[in-house]
Design a protein around this nucleic acid. Structure first.
Lengths: 132, 132
DNA sequence: CCGTATCCGATCCGATACTG
DNA sequence: CAGTATCGGATCGGATACGG
């Protein structure tokens, strides 16, 4: 994915960014704070190093993620959300997360949610009562 | 794009939905209210009927969009956001829109924004002063 | 006006091998 | 640990034609 330079609609460009397979998950992981490449690689199940690096580079180009490199060996870098756009974008991602939870509850995928500690049985029951 | 049935992470599924080329724009258009197919086709520049129908079907499968069919000729249908998930998702899309605007302003793509009536010169100047 | 089917090039992404 | 390069299959999306 290459960021063009002739966008006429803001959504177009954001969408070009978000469509990569791993971007939302990466942003969501970085919500917890700065992380190293290997850390992200461990925490994001199924991602390859190549993909991770590619997606991070694009997020950086778009000003959602910034990179800090430390001197010395072993090499160490830290990726984190940018103050303005990165943080803002994570707000959107967080809402999308809620929408996903809603869908999973409605379609009886509760177990996966509970196993991952994303919600508790009690919260699901509450939502169920509200939905009817 | 097919919605799987073995998701373990809410973001995964939302991302599967959002990655299609036109979904965010369709959702954003529907924010204004129910619209017919042909109306959407006219308003979304560059989209083909095939794509529009495909994406609408997926949005419907995921419970973001609902469809209402009217009797008689000429045929008429109305697509609209669903009350809970559709409306919620558009909140996320709106935030993404803001992020896109931010990017375009920072990268001197003001003209496109102003031409489309998305923001005014004054608003941009204000943002510029805040950003420095 | 609304919807389905097919064909085909563009792109995405995973695996793998290699460098500083 | 962090990053680059390449290759090939899978998927996506545009064009086009056809049907209710």
């Amino acid at each position: 994915m290459k960021i063009r330079d002739d966008y006429t609609c803001p959504l177009e460009i954001v969408h070009d960014i978000i469509r990569g397979k791993w971007k939302t998950i990466i942003l969501y992981q970085l919500k917890e704070g700065p992380k190293s490449l290997s850390q992200l690689e461990r925490e994001i199940e199924g991602i390859s190093q190549k993909m991770l690096l590619e997606q991070l580079a694009e997020l950086k180009d778009f000003g959602l993620v910034q990179k800090k490199e430390f001197e010395g060996y072993p090499l160490h870098v830290e990726y984190s959300l940018t103050d303005r756009r990165g943080q803002k974008m994570v707000e959107a991602v967080s809402i999308m997360q809620m929408v996903g939870v809603d869908y999973m509850i409605e379609n009886n995928m509760d177990d996966a949610l509970i196993n991952k500690g994303i919600v508790t049985r009690e919260q699901i029951d509450k939502v169920r009562r509200e939905q009817g």
